[in-house]
Every structure is written in structure tokens, then in C-alpha cells.
Amino acid sequence: MNAIGTEPYIILSMVLFLMGALGVLIRRNAILLFMSVELMLNSANLALVAFAREWGQVDGHVFVFFVMTVAAAEVAIGLALIVNIFRERQSINIDDLQQMRG
């Protein structure tokens, strides 16, 4: 059953995490930025589940359920904020968010 060890999962989750982090730093569209953040959260979820299997516990799985719930709440708020900013600016490019400087 444990034909695949824990390491490949962790390496995959780290790759996903880095992709998400780079996405946040490079992308300029608010929705893509937001998707990158979600990718980071899910990479942490993958790591948690893999670790839970390694330890033979349910703690990690429970953690993942809470993270998913929180991420859902975050999606609701985040999309509302994006709609809000689009109404004000007709743009969701975060480089346009420059009204305040100094």
C-alpha cells in the first residue's frame, strides 16, 4: 500500500508552494494572484496529508479540513473585494492600485 514513500509528496508540495509564491510575486492580475495564494494553501494541505499518512494519525487530516474551511471563507471575501475594486476602477491589475504613495 505504501508503494510511494512520503518524500515524493513533500517534494511535490514544495514545488507547488514555490510555484504559488512565484505566482504571487510575478502575476499582476488580482484573480491570478489570488489563485496562486490558494495554490500555496493547497500545497500545505498536501504536505499535511502526506505527513499524516507517514505518522499514521488523523491530526493532519483534521487540520486539512479546517484549512479548507478557512480557505473557502477567504475565497468568499477575496472575490467580493475583487468585485468591489473592479467597480471602482474597471481594472483588477494590482499595479493600478497606486492611489496612495509616500
Binding site: 504571487v24 489570488f34 495564494v37 473585494l81 468591489n84 475594486i85 471602482e88 494590482i94
Partner: peptide, 13 residues
């Protein structure tokens, strides 16, 4: 609106 958006993106990151 801009302030909330910035806070959200950085905070979620």
C-alpha cells in the same frame, strides 16, 4: 477599496 485589496492579498500570502 484599494486598502482592503492590498491588505487581503498580502495577508493571505
Amino acid at each position: 477599496a484599494e486598502s482592503g485589496m492590498k491588505y487581503f492579498l498580502y495577508g493571505a500570502f
